[in-house]
Design a protein around this nucleic acid. Structure first.
Lengths: 143, 143
DNA sequence: ACCGATTTACTTGACATCATGAAATATTCA
DNA sequence: TGAATATTTCATGATGTCAAGTAAATCGGT
């Protein structure tokens, strides 16, 4: 059993903590290079794929819709995002990335070598093993 | 090579993103059960191991010392932490967990089964492989 | 060994962002 | 018509930065 006092489990837990910390450092650093906060970068990344209603953004971010209003306000003030009416439902406002927003999102993705660079040290076989172990750890099955 | 368009690498990157999200959910949920924020829980965890000067807390949190003042203020107001003078340097204030703070920190650790429970699905050998792959990914060598 | 200048540790204040919750408005749906 | 939904606004609190201020330690020149 994996108990709390199991040394091996504790080592893995600590490593995962390090991964989480490293992930955020890289993410925030990349965002800051474009004068964006982590939350703004995350929303811009979502919207660069497809326009989304405010409410769905809140669901993705697991936060209150009233919070999304402010984040979109700030992105809109910088010309990275725009609000559009939803033709199908006049209550809904769709947030959509502008051309400049998509450009910034692409640069952000390119700068985010958190996983790309350290993973380069692993062989294909090793990456496959890592992928499968992470999947099982997360309780996902092979798609 | 691990390029950005490498499917396997992208899968691993996405899984790591999921791990990060899951980690935060669990952490914040466990903290909220004790009416603590994530930042407060993190600092309390640090101080439950050893008292630390304010400045070192800021280094661990990678934030400004002025920010730590407020976090310790709130923990101190709840009796979980206390400030002590450092006998060796009167400029320094040591933040130390109180008995109640240590108790809360222990309960927090026990509630944090993020890694314990999902890792239970892996065998010892698999956990060892996972540990070694994560270490190499993070650029650490065996201690 | 002394003393002034610099550095270090912490706090305070002003401000921006992120987060929640309650109330207001507009629109849709039963 | 009345209930439910989508968004915004407002009040509030936690977190974060930066600049300025206070207290204490350290350094360098005499």
């Amino acid at each position: 059993m994996a108990t709390r006092t199991d040394t091996l489990t504790l080592e893995v837990v600590e490593l995962i903590g390090t991964v989480v910390a490293r992930y955020h450092e890289e993410y925030d650093r990349a965002a800051a290079e474009h004068s964006l906060t982590g939350a703004q970068a995350r929303v811009l990344g979502l919207l660069s794929l497809e326009p989304l209603p405010m409410r769905k953004i809140a669901v993705r971010l697991k936060c209150e819709p009233s919070n999304v209003t402010g984040i979109i306000d700030r992105l809109e003030a910088r010309g990275l995002v725009e609000r559009r009416p939803d033709p199908a439902d006049r209550r809904v406002k769709l947030a959509a990335a502008t051309d400049q927003g998509r450009r910034t999102a692409r640069e952000l993705r390119d700068a985010l070598d958190f996983a790309r660079e350290p993973l380069a040290g692993l062989s294909d076989d090793e990456r496959t093993v890592l992928r499968d172990l992470l999947r099982r750890m997360l309780g996902e099955e092979a798609p």
